[in-house]
Simulated scan of single mutants.
Amino acid sequence: MQISRCKACEYRFKSGAYSVRGRLDTKTRVGRYVPISPRTCKLLDEYMRETADFGNEYLFVTYEGHKVSDSTVRENIKILGKIARLDRAKVAPHTFRHTGALYNIYGGDPFSLQKILGHSYMKMVRRYVQMTNRDVQTQHAQYSPLNYVFK
């Protein structure tokens, strides 16, 4: 799980991105930059100030200052799912990734999403973005060529 291996030195404050190392941290062994919103950057900055005294190279640490484990991330996400009353949904790290991908596609484009997710082929991105009929109808209504012909 990539989030448990994030190192503080790979977080780019000024550019608002996180540098994912390609050597061991990705399936494709290809590195990438993942954009981070200004609000998230602000929260990460606060978090890093709070945890700086631990002197740990990892970005996310336990209350004792040790590197957070994959199982701790999974457990915390399940707890947050219960708090949010998502009893029927599968609440797991990959579900968060999938949900984030869906939010990105509605406000972005599939090519940016492919780069953010680190997929080599668009075929993999399509698995994340299975549009419903309603989604297709909404997209068509918004971007139909006739909208531009008859203004």
Rank of each mutant, 00 (worst) to 15 (best):
V68Y: 05
G81T: 11
V91F: 05
F96T: 07
I77Y: 10
V61H: 03
R97K: 07
R21T: 01
T26H: 07
S71V: 14
Y58N: 01
R23A: 10
Y106P: 00
I77N: 09
P35C: 07
G108I: 07
F96H: 00
E50P: 00
L86H: 10
I83D: 10
G22I: 06
R49M: 10
G107V: 02
R85N: 13
T26R: 07
I83Q: 14
H94C: 04
Y33S: 10
L102D: 00
I83F: 07
G81E: 11
G31A: 02
K90R: 15
P38K: 08
F54D: 03
Y33R: 11
R39L: 14
P38N: 05
N76K: 15
R88W: 03
N56T: 05
Y33F: 12
D87H: 15
V68R: 04
R97F: 05
I83N: 07
A89P: 00
R74F: 10
L43G: 01
G100S: 08
N104Q: 14
G107Q: 14
N56Y: 02
K67N: 01
C41K: 14
D87T: 15
H66E: 14
P110S: 13
V61G: 01
P93C: 09
V34G: 02
V68M: 15
R97N: 01
P35E: 03
M48K: 12
D109M: 10
L102E: 01
T40E: 05
N104L: 13
A92S: 15
V61F: 03
R32M: 01
H94N: 06
A92M: 05
A52P: 00
G65P: 07
Y47W: 15
L59Y: 07
S69Q: 11
L43S: 08
T95N: 08
L24K: 13
P38Y: 04
E75F: 09
K27R: 09
L80C: 15
V91H: 09
T26V: 05
T72L: 14
V68S: 02
S37A: 13
